[in-house]
């Protein structure tokens, strides 16, 4: 995955899927990614898909970043997929078989090996940090380190702007997620 980083940074367009379940803060993660990309001068489209429940069920957030106009707003050729539940991993495993890197959570999904699959216990680590709900920030840090779609500093800036005095845990989770991948 490390070899892919520099190549991806030179791309004009990035398409990202954040998948999991309602309540994991995936839409917020998508918004933060989008805001970070805006800081870096790119156009952004962020969409979501969810069921009628506010907790549970498959929930998806998509983010597209492009130097040019974004015409079709949905992800068609993802550069990376985050899967935070077993259901999400099962849904997108065929993409990994096509070579799309998938970062997945080994706390909520069963650990498995495979080309393009990279598992980390995101939920457990977030819990160890003191708040399971920081799992989205942890995963963002990992995703950012794995792909370089945005600068980690841009993400830190938008997190500080949004959470102000309460940004500490989120930032801590973000950097911890980054280290997870860099250290791997």
């Amino acid at each position: 995955m490390k070899a892919g980083v520099e190549m991806k940074k030179s791309q004009k367009r990035h398409e990202i899927i954040l998948a999991g379940t309602g309540g994991q803060g995936l839409v917020l993660a998508g918004i933060l990614l989008g805001e970070a990309a805006i800081l870096e001068g790119r156009n952004v489209a962020q969409t979501q898909s969810y069921g009628v429940a506010s907790r549970g069920g498959l929930s998806l957030a998509e983010v597209i970043m492009d130097r040019d106009e974004i015409i079709f707003q949905q992800v068609q050729n993802p550069d990376i997929i985050l899967a935070l539940t077993q259901e999400a991993l099962d849904k997108f495993r065929p993409e990994a078989q096509k070579g799309v890197p998938i970062l997945f959570d080994t706390t909520l999904a069963k650990a498995e090996d495979g080309a393009s699959l990279s598992g980390h216990p995101f939920t457990r680590i977030a819990s160890d940090l003191g708040n399971t709900s920081a799992v989205n920030m942890l995963a963002l840090g990992a995703l950012c380190a794995a792909t370089g779609v945005v600068d980690i500093q841009s993400l830190a800036r938008v997190i500080e702007k949004r959470f102000k005095a309460k940004a500490d845990l989120s930032l801590q989770a973000l950097y911890r997620g980054m280290e997870l991948v860099r250290g791997a």
Binding site: I38, V44, A45, Q46, T47, Q73
Partner: peptide, 9 residues
Amino acid sequence: EIVGHMRES
């Protein structure tokens, strides 16, 4: 719904 819920720069 797509446009109502979509976010864009």
